[in-house]
Design a protein around this nucleic acid. Structure first.
Lengths: 227, 227
DNA sequence: CGAACTCCTTGACATAGATCAAGTTCGCGG
DNA sequence: CCGCGAACTTGATCTATGTCAAGGAGTTCG
């Protein structure tokens, strides 16, 4: 079944395996579909499956007591979600919601344990993945506590994959502005104001709700670097 | 050599091994001493050793461009530092400094690779450790973005291991207040004011620079919970 | 035991950004 | 192609917290 197959071949943590082995892994995977807005897992809910993204996009967020949500990361093709439950046996303290219709492959914890035992390479790659995620949250934390929203917005725009067109790059926002605000640790209002300000000073140009043209990359980079 | 031995037996990631195996692991370890204030590793510096804490305490922080430091975690007995360099080959983007005289055991990356290959259990436990650290940074991030300093201070005090004495708990601050401020994502001034305020409203009592008596746990818990 | 240094506290002030409250616009479904 | 609802913008206001600047207290070391 080509669906399952893709799940396995695309994912970094299964990358070290031979074709043979990948096929065996694929045997354990089951495809799952999540509609836009569907909750993939919720805090406190027992989870017994590990998810591998195939297409679409999830947001993983930490919902605070007062209703403020902090988006921790967005999950796309090839990313793995829910490994904490598998590794530690704890229930999640975060929330995963599909931002759009998403396909993923699901591994039961029991099956996964077998795979890990048989193919140590997988743990090895999982370690690397986790380590990368750790650094990326740490970077986010440092960015949020030490720079102002303006700088964070600029840095965020510059990080987005952009398509060049005669000197100016155009980027497509991967989420609604509210979500971006939640990721940058601010509010939609503030984000809106900052973007308006950047636009007013001619650094960027807004087109519709999802497109941003970066007119002056150098200046934007300057904004992104505090002090 | 009993020193090395302790390094190995105390550390969670080597916990699954038999005594025999632990002895073999201990063979690879070399003891190292860091004076108070000594830099254990710095951003950008190539690191080829993994450290296991034996006694003392380090702080690991992300120094931002503008001089603001965000303390990511403190590292004590049994904790592992510098695994990112080992796992990904990248240079650190964080800074580790000894808060007090510290003893640790050091493993060369090459030796460690051998150990991981021979004892898959170690990777397993490392995965769990990393996963825990990931959650804890995520919690910190959520706390910093969604609650005010007052709540963070209260929560921090409540998290500290305290010794009960006739209804009131006394906690000993593990670091200087400046460090605590850096951990909570605020400034020493603000921390000082908040502690003074908590003291003024009779929730806590300050003794010297390092001792805090919690007079009203319930009230403090209430402060720690926003909404 | 006291000097000296570091760490901490307090005060006055400035301000970024949150919040509340309306509008306004976009883009989707019919 | 149109209308509706969600998403966004804009404005006004408020306040928590950062910043700068002294002064005071605690340790530590000679």
């Amino acid at each position: 079944m080509p669906e399952d197959d893709l799940c396995v071949t695309r994912v970094p943590i299964f990358q070290g395996l031979t074709r043979q082995e990948q096929l065996r892994v694929a045997d354990f995977a089951r495809p799952v579909l999540a509609e836009k807005g569907e909750i993939v897992y919720a805090p406190g809910q027992p989870v017994s499956r590990l998810l591998v993204m195939h297409s679409g996009q999830l947001k993983v967020s930490h919902a605070a007591a007062n209703g403020q949500e902090q988006i921790l990361r967005t999950v796309t093709d090839g990313d793995v979600v829910g490994e904490r439950a598998f590794l530690t046996g704890h229930r999640p303290n975060d929330l995963a919601v599909a931002l759009e219709e998403s396909r993923m492959c699901v591994f039961d914890h029991a099956d996964l344990a077998v795979l890990l035992r048989d193919y140590p390479d997988i743990s090895q790659r999982m370690l690397r993945t986790l380590s990368d995620r750790l650094s990326s949250v740490e970077r986010l934390l440092a960015a949020i506590t030490s720079s102002d929203v303006n700088a964070r917005v600029a840095a965020y725009l510059l990080d987005l994959p952009g398509t060049m067109r005669d000197g100016a790059a155009t980027v497509r926002l991967p989420m609604a502005k509210q979500e971006i605000a939640a990721y940058l640790g601010t509010t939609p209002e503030t984000l809106s104001r900052r973007l308006a300000a950047l636009s007013a000073s001619g650094l960027i140009e807004l087109h519709g709700r999802r497109e941003v043209t970066i007119l002056d990359i150098d200046a934007l980079e300057h904004v992104a670097t505090p002090r």
